[in-house]
Write a protein that binds this DNA or RNA. Structure first.
Lengths: 260, 260
DNA sequence: ACCTGAACACCGTTCAAGT
DNA sequence: ACCTGAACACCGTTCAAGT
């Protein structure tokens, strides 16, 4: 009768239970499918019951943000500031990979949540602990931007931030514009449709095609799927961290920068 | 009677007219207020009439994206690749400042639009024209990420990407969490509320407070409002561009990098 | 005092009925 | 063949009526 863990069907609703259910719901069905009514049904409760624990949907989303941010590993204390920040940010990225909807929810918030501020404060603390000036730490945080939260900020949507149902959208959509007058390959059944798409891509976007062709040499097969997200993330992160480290060594200040 | 320009009330609907009206609508009322029904009313037309020119709302949003991207200035042809890319990206940023809703709409698209691909292709072309390898150009685009489209990717929402109604949200929201047990300043009418908020900020987020305090020395007055967005954008952009240039000079390839 | 059903003012989109 | 009103299946949230 009494099962302390698991999904107790009639446990009294609490803000934490509401948030936990909402995270699970978003993980499973996507953030667009998360509605107050649907969440209430999932909890076996009338919609209005939720409003006892969250003021409205915006506050629910704020709660989701902080629930996700709480999963980011605490900072490591030994080693350089650079290694510590690097590791923390890579941890944040893992959290975002677990909750693909989180990036969009975080960016949709009008004001930063308490959890976001706490995380931000902690990262600045690591920079300061490494000897960076307040000035440089400030601009470093701006430069890292949402990357500090694990955001990839892809130019084309692949990986974090992509909606679940759009796996092959980039490849197929590339050559399929509404105004394409004369078809190249046709759909009669002749050649490989992927090869035909590749030909149209090359005609329309030669430089993108060159990149894709270069990538397909080593391993990848499908258009746009050849990018190693983890490598790209670390590439950009290291570009920024090394630039910041260089400025730090040079005793950079915003006053001496090319600010005019 | 016949006024060729301006808002002709009974001009035959066209896809372009629909998109122009939608951009104006979003500019004026915000993207959240843009609905098919509302847009139809704005155009003096029954909702279903729109579906003759856009398949559905998603296609309307795709159209908005390309309409905005078309405003980005064409690339300059003389000078270094670095200067050309820098200028182009700063132009993209100006476009996004004109249409604060655009960043969120662009990131919400499941697949890249034709206009996004064309812009992407063009920027890669500039990098290649400057002598960068396909390999480096590829990773450079990833590193620049959506910044290439003018995205600021702020950690805390100020400027581009912020919804119109949240001007002072960051400052006021910082010290106002739901679980704040004992109030520091109270609201009886005693001290400066800004100073009280600052005191609570300092207690809760000391490193953020230090940054804010450092900023308020030169000019700024309100919490969080002291950041020069343009400076921060160029700071991050130059950090990346200079890092990429350094790799280019060193003959960097992803094979020789610390890829394991 | 607490909880909740019905209602309000919206959505995007389908579909059948009008011309 | 074209256009469009009504309808469908949803939303978040208010509010008054129930216990």
């Amino acid at each position: 009768m009494d099962r302390p863990s698991g999904t107790a069907r009639r446990a009294p609703l609490s803000r934490e239970r509401v948030l936990r259910a909402a995270v699970a719901y978003a993980d499973g069905a996507g953030i667009d499918a998360l509605s107050m009514r649907g969440l209430a049904q999932e909890l076996g409760v009338v919609p209005m019951a939720l409003y006892k624990h969250v003021a409205n949907k915006d506050e629910l989303l704020d709660g989701l943000v902080d629930a996700v941010l709480a999963e980011i590993a605490p900072p490591v204390v030994d080693g350089t500031w650079k290694a510590a920040v690097r590791e923390r940010i890579l941890s944040a990225r893992q959290v975002l990979l677990r909750h693909p909807w989180a990036a969009r929810v975080i960016t949709s918030r009008a004001a930063p949540t308490p959890g976001a501020l706490a995380y931000l404060d902690s990262v600045i603390g690591t920079l300061r602990g490494g000897g960076l000036s307040v000035d440089l730490a400030h601009h470093a945080m701006h430069a890292l931007g949402s990357r500090v939260l694990g955001f990839t900020q892809e130019l084309v949507p692949t990986g974090v931030g992509t909606t679940p149902g759009a796996e092959t959208g980039a490849g197929a959509g590339a050559g399929t514009t509404a105004d394409s007058g004369g078809e190249v390959g046709g759909d009669g059944g002749g050649g490989d449709p992927a090869a035909a798409g590749m030909r149209e891509l090359a005609a329309r976007y030669p430089h993108i095609a060159a990149v894709v062709a270069d990538r397909t040499h080593d391993g990848a097969s499908v258009v746009g799927a050849g990018c190693d997200d983890q490598f790209e993330f670390e590439f950009a992160l290291d570009l920024l961290l090394e630039g910041i480290e260089r400025l730090h060594r040079q005793g950079w200040t915003s006053a001496t920068a090319g600010r005019a």
